[in-house]
Amino acid sequence: MDFSVDDTTAELAGLVREIGERLVTDESLRELDARFGPGTEFGGTDRETARFHARFWDELVRAGVPAALAPERLGGAGLGVEGEALVLRELGRVLAPVPLSPAIRASHLLAATGLTDLAAAVAEGREIAAVADGSSPEVDWAPVADLVLRADGDGLRVADLGSIRVERTVPVDFSCAGVVTGDFGDPAPLPEGAAAFDALRRRVHLAAYQWGVLEAALERTAAYATTRHQFGRPIGSFQAVAARLADGMIDVDAVRLSTLRAAYELDACSDHPGPAARDAVASAHFWACDAGHRLAHSAVHIHGGVGLDRSEPAHRYFLAAKAAEFRLGGATRQLLDLGDVLTTEGDPWEYSA
């Protein structure tokens, strides 16, 4: 299977990395923690107190990143779910708290229902969208959103702030989320398979973000192991520490390969996800959860007490990895999904390219 990246996708991902590394610094994340973080999570209810990196989001919008990942009928670059995954990975590397994933999903869902003007407003950053996950009342990014979408078998429902109420919640990583109640209105018809495709797209986005989180956490931990000395030598030279770092490399690679495979299968199924796509997404989620748990704990253990010190960045990677694990439903949940596909459909990859 060819996971090579075309020049357009590579340039877009590189642009996001450059902007992210310049703007989403440890200092800027500390400032967000002071707004909505440990000890301040109930200090306000408006957008100004949300854990939302507005400057980075504005730069992404100005650079045309959400628009490039929008549907081609809206002027998007046609990079597919694989391109989206590579960009989401860059957000995970810097722990960027911006609503890019719901912007991508909302623009595709709105365009599929024919609401092209609203889809364009979301893709161009003039409106911030949040997308509900099935029937769950908690919706990521709802506290800062201008509209909230809910897609299911009946169609797409779109609610604005005038018809719903959002009560902020406190996820383990202090990310932006809230419980949404109120009237979503009548559904607009969606093409067959669109809601199922969106649910899988969301899961690939989460796995891709986790890939970036784990990759950066491993890099930071390896760097720390070369500078922290005990008994007159760097701790990275100790066999037990080196072995955990080596295992971490294998875990990151497993998340990378399984996430790219899931994105590839979604791009190949033309908006009608079959067993191969569902199987690939469940596999990617298993690795994102299982590897995420292992590597998050390895990073904290190798950092020692510094790993839990709020003045240091390591603890944010631990919280982000654990939050992604919880959002994905845990490794056992993914194995159950995978087993269900294998039981009912057989091995969908037996004749896969």
Rank of each mutant, 00 (worst) to 15 (best):
D2C: 04
V5P: 06
A13V: 06
E18V: 10
S28V: 09
R30G: 15
F36Y: 12
F36R: 08
E41H: 05
F42P: 03
G43S: 09
T45K: 06
T49Y: 03
A50W: 06
R51E: 06
F56T: 08
L60S: 11
A63W: 07
A63G: 07
G78H: 09
G78R: 12
V87K: 08
E90I: 05
R93Q: 09
V94D: 01
L95H: 01
A96T: 02
A96C: 05
L100E: 09
P102D: 02
R105N: 01
L110D: 05
A112H: 00
L115R: 10
L115Q: 10
T116W: 00
A121I: 01
E124D: 14
A130H: 07
A132M: 12
S135Y: 08
S136R: 14
P137D: 10
P137K: 05
D140Q: 14
W141F: 11
V144H: 07
D152E: 04
L156V: 06
R157P: 08
G162D: 11
R165W: 02
E167W: 01
R168C: 05
T169G: 03
C176L: 09
A177V: 03
G178W: 04
V180M: 07
G185R: 05
D186H: 11
P187Y: 05
A195S: 15
F197W: 15
L206E: 15
E215W: 14
E215S: 15
R220Y: 09
A225Q: 13
R228G: 07
Q230Y: 14
G232W: 13
R233W: 12
A240R: 14
V241G: 11
A242E: 12
R244P: 05
R244F: 02
A246N: 10
G248I: 06
I250L: 10
A254G: 11
R261G: 05
R261L: 10
A268R: 14
A268F: 00
D271P: 00
D271A: 02
H272W: 00
P275R: 04
A277F: 02
A277D: 08
W287Y: 13
W287A: 12
A288Q: 03
A288T: 05
D290R: 14
H293L: 15
R294H: 11
R294D: 13
A296D: 05
H297G: 09
H301V: 15
H303Y: 15
G304P: 09
S311V: 02
E312C: 07
P313W: 06
A314D: 07
A314H: 09
F318S: 04
K322R: 12
F326N: 06
F326H: 04
F326D: 09
R327A: 14
L328Q: 08
D347L: 00
W349E: 09
A353F: 03
